[in-house]
Each structure stands twice: as C-alpha cells, then as structure tokens.
Design a protein around this nucleic acid. Sequence first.
DNA 1: CTACCGATTGACT
DNA 2: GTCAATCGGTAGA
Length: 224
Amino acid sequence: MIDVSAQGIDAPRTPLSREFYARDPAIVARELLGKWLIRQAADGAISAGRIVEAEAYLSSRDRACHATRGKSPKNATMFGPAGHAYVYAIHARWCLNAVTEGIGVPSAVLIRAMEPLVGIDLMQLRRGLEKNLDLARGPARLCAALDVTKHYDGWDLTAGRELWIADDPTLNGKQLKIIRSRRVGVTSAHHRLLRFFIAGSPYVSGRRSVLTARHSALFRRPAT
DNA sequence: CTACCGATTGACT
DNA sequence: GTCAATCGGTAGA
C-alpha cells in the first residue's frame, strides 16, 4: 500500500544506464515503475519521488505516438539515442518522456505520475499547492513540481546531473503489483494496453472512483 | 501572418 | 459527470 518509509532517505545518485532505456518502450514503461525520478536545482536543492505511472509510445507502429507522422522540430529528440528526455507541450503545459530503443526509432515512455518523497516543500512551492497527493499526479503536474520545462528536451538522463532516474534504494527486491490499462487522453489507438501503474497507489492519475473500478475489474481472477 | 489542435488541468453541475 | 482556459507547435495562406 502507501509506502512512506522512503521519506527522509537521500535520493540515489547512480543513474539508470543507456542499455536500460534502449529496449521496447512497453518493457521500459513497466520497469520504470518504482524507480526514482530526481531533479537537482541550480542551488543544489533536490526534489524527487517514486514513479507510479507510465505509458509507452511505439514509434511508427503506434498511431498515438507523436512521431508516427515523421520527424519535426518538436519530436526530433525521440529520433535520437535512448535515455534522453523528450519534453513536449500540451495545452500550455510540459510533459516528460524518456526516449527508448535505438537511434532513428522514435519511441518513448511518458512519465505520468510520481509519489513525492524528497524536497516536498520545494515541490509545493513550485505547484502553489500543499496537497501531497496531487503534487505530481498527472504528467504536467509532475513537470511543474520538478520544474521540468522545454529546457530539458534532449537532456541526457544517464549523466546523473540535474535530471535523472535511478533504482529505488528502499525496494530491496520487493515485487510491485502492476496494472496495465488503456492510455489516458489519446484519441487514436485507444484500445492498446500501454499504460502501466502501481496497484493501489493514491499517487496515480485519474479519478479515484474510475481507478478503483478498473482496479478491481483487472484484479479479479478465477479461483485456482 | 492567421487558424487551428492537443499524450492536460481545474473548476464547475 | 461536463466544460473551457491555456499556449507551443504546426500547417497553410
């Protein structure tokens, strides 16, 4: 359930490798759950949290992917090497992706929600909001909480400075319960199950009632 | 230059 | 549940 044991722990410094990202985006999205997303501001202040929700966008074989109709200045980063940040604007807000697969294959994982763990005061300040649950619940809220803007489009997430992703130092081999569902807000390829989130996490985006219904439906299993 | 559109959010009934 | 504000990116005149 809600794991607050990580609060007060230092953010991990060792970034995930290029090889981690250079795989199928559905696998990367699935495996990014539980990882820490870390932001270090110019003055050294750290803000970070645990990724609880991510979506895969599969290059030319996915109609919902921004790169499905070819390269443009906006999506150029997705055509570059894996492990770089792809930051784009939607409805006047920023969203953060991690580029996956190889050069010339424009796929990525959208990081949709995070459980705030470190630097919560700073994230509250950036969001103009106190409520911990809503600080990074949604891709644009997450970017606002971490002050991720167009400035970080193309940023190398494997360099381990300013913005990176690392293994959870508190996980200790624990297995996460993960649910797979349709992606949020996409207008094409709506049926594809390319959204992944941690079961029961209150930091996952979407309406609570919808989440609970979907949750129980997907968890129902025939007795064995 | 103008005219849309959207991987969103927050306010509202 | 509904709805519209918001503005960067993009296409087209």
